[in-house]
Amino acid sequence: MNRINQKLQEDKKLLSIYFTAGYPNLDDTVKIIQDLEKNGVDLIEIGLPFSDPLADGPTIQDSSTQALKNGMTTEVLFNQLKDVRQSVNIPLIIMGYFNPMLQYGVEDFCKKCQEIGIDGLIIPDLPVDVYHEEYQSTFEKYGLINVFLITPQTSGERIRYIDSVSNGFIYMVSSASTTGAKTGFGDEQTQYFERIDSLNLSNPQIVGFGISNNDTFTQATKYAKGAIIGSAFVKHVTNEGIETIDSFVKNILD
């Protein structure tokens, strides 16, 4: 069974952390992954940097730009990760935009992911219908789970469709925004969380966007299976470096 599905069966609320690979320094990737696991993080999203990240706010944009300046490429990332499974057991997901994967070759990319032990992908600009028609069989051939986003504006019908194509979890974007644009939740989010919860989808949901501390983590996971922190972690790494990952994670979970 895929590590993501195993993890989702655990009787706990899951914390997933996103970081940009190659940031702050090119070779921080594996150390960040190891530290996150050591401190109790359940899932990791490894950001493959892109020059034009449309769905991201300034924090992740800037970290991506810096990572690319540092020399990060798809090939470099795969090399950094080639032995990662010797020391890391939790699910690893690569999150990135579609064009770098397209240039690498979608099949080659998936194959490489399987070799390394990557469990899933999140590709914000690969729409579910294109995935379903052109790439699903390739992803499945290499045992990869593809994770789709839904937002407060996604219609019930489309959520059902996304649920039917998904085989891991659904990434529930908390509010209509780019990453890092908003923090905290209001009534609107609570209603949205309740609405999605009441749909009884076959895939569990993990909430992302707007989560930065214990408070928002607790709110987000009241209905959902877990929550994802991205911009807040990248900010932490920018300000504090990668030596204090333990205190960041502790603040979320305690």
Partner: peptide, 22 residues
């Protein structure tokens, strides 16, 4: 340019071998 994705469509675009838009 080579085939790739920019601003929501597949088209010809100037990019690195790694798929970063130049």
């Amino acid at each position: 340019g080579k085939e790739g994705i920019i601003h929501g469509c597949k088209t010809l675009l100037m990019q690195t071998n790694d798929g970063q838009i130049t």
